[in-house]
């Protein structure tokens, strides 16, 4: 298992390196590069810009610049926001909890319902339920998240008045945990929709794969009740490939979170990205890109770890 994890760790580091190169390239691809903001300052002279470029090391060869940038990044110096000169890392970390809270809730909803739908579809293959679930999943994958958000707001906030149309808590506060949960329901469900579809499809395929395996026949041959065969023998095997899916789905979930946050004015990282883009606040934009890729890498690594714990076959290698 140590070898397996070490291999995965090395792989992640390689990916992290490439990811950082992509991030660096995007920032330097921007018209005007990192200096773009200052170039717009009225009355700034070429000489002054050149001086700043030299000060920031922008006249150095790109590999040298990359190395300096990476060292600062690893040292925790992610630069300062153009908007309010706050350290980028602090700005992002201030917004991250709201996003993670939204994502975590959505993934719990998605895994529970998606797995249930997938299992039911697999054991009642080609039933009415299975067909509706299949069509429903395809449609859910086709609905734009923001539109679904608008529909939910229209029905549950505008018409029924059951759920607040946005924000993380009632402005002015004082509502306590229930107030938070009340605000969480709609955005979490909206974000979860696509993931429910994905999970139900993969779970169905995985379950179908498992229930046709020889060891399931063995379990039946032992005379075990169908329910025991399903939950004790099939479920665990069918869930194993799903662990990897959880890791892979991280970027999709994060992208969905950005859109959901916009619709529900949720004060998370996605909104921060949009705001920063509006201000051409490149250091923050860069920081968010790096954090999002880092989350994806961590998600994959966590999935690998979990798989190693859950699958006894991995332990030996």
């Amino acid at each position: 298992m140590a070898n397996f994890l070490l291999g995965r760790l090395v792989q992640s580091l390689v990916l992290l390196f490439i990811v950082s190169v992509i991030g660096f390239a995007v920032l330097h691809l921007a018209p005007g590069g990192p200096l773009a903001q200052f170039a717009l300052t009225p009355g700034i002279s070429h000489a002054e810009l050149a001086r700043m470029a030299h000060q920031m090391g922008l006249d150095q060869p790109l590999p040298v610049q990359y190395w300096a940038w990476l060292r600062r990044l690893l040292g925790g110096d992610w630069g300062h926001s153009y908007r309010d000169n706050q350290p980028v890392l602090a700005v992002i970390l201030g917004r991250l909890p709201a996003t993670l809270e939204l994502m975590a809730t959505a993934i719990v909803i998605a895994v529970l319902t998606g797995v249930w739908i997938g299992v039911m579809g697999a054991i009642r293959r080609y039933s009415i339920f299975d067909m509706l679930a299949t069509i429903g999943a395809m449609i859910a994958l086709s609905i734009p998240t923001f539109w679904f958000g608008l529909i939910v707001i229209y029905i549950f906030s505008v018409n029924l008045g059951w759920l607040p149309p946005g924000n993380r808590s009632t402005i002015g506060g004082g509502g306590g945990i229930l107030d938070y949960l009340h605000h969480l329901i709609a955005p979490a469900i909206v974000l979860a929709l696509v993931e429910v579809a994905v999970w139900s499809r993969y779970m169905r395929a995985s379950m179908l794969d498992v229930i046709n395996q020889d060891f399931i026949r063995t379990a039946h041959a032992k005379g075990l009740p169908a329910r025991t065969v399903l939950w004790h023998h099939a479920m665990r095997n069918a869930l194993l490939p799903m662990i990897a899916l959880a890791g892979v789905e991280m970027p999709t979930l994060l992208g969905g979170a950005l859109v959901t946050e916009t619709v529900f004015t949720w004060p998370g990282m996605g909104r921060l990205l949009l705001d920063s883009l509006g201000y051409r606040d490149y250091p923050v934009v860069m920081g968010i890109l790096m954090v999002s890729a880092l989350l994806a890498l961590l998600g994959n690594l966590a999935a690998d770890l979990l798989a190693a714990v859950a699958d006894p076959r991995i332990r030996l290698r």
């Binding site: 490439i18 992509i22 970027p251 999709t252 950005l258 883009l277 890109l289 999002s292």
Partner: peptide, 14 residues
Amino acid sequence: DAVLCFPQIFLLLV
């Protein structure tokens, strides 16, 4: 693999 680490919508917006 590395490009897939970024949410597509983030890259697109940037």
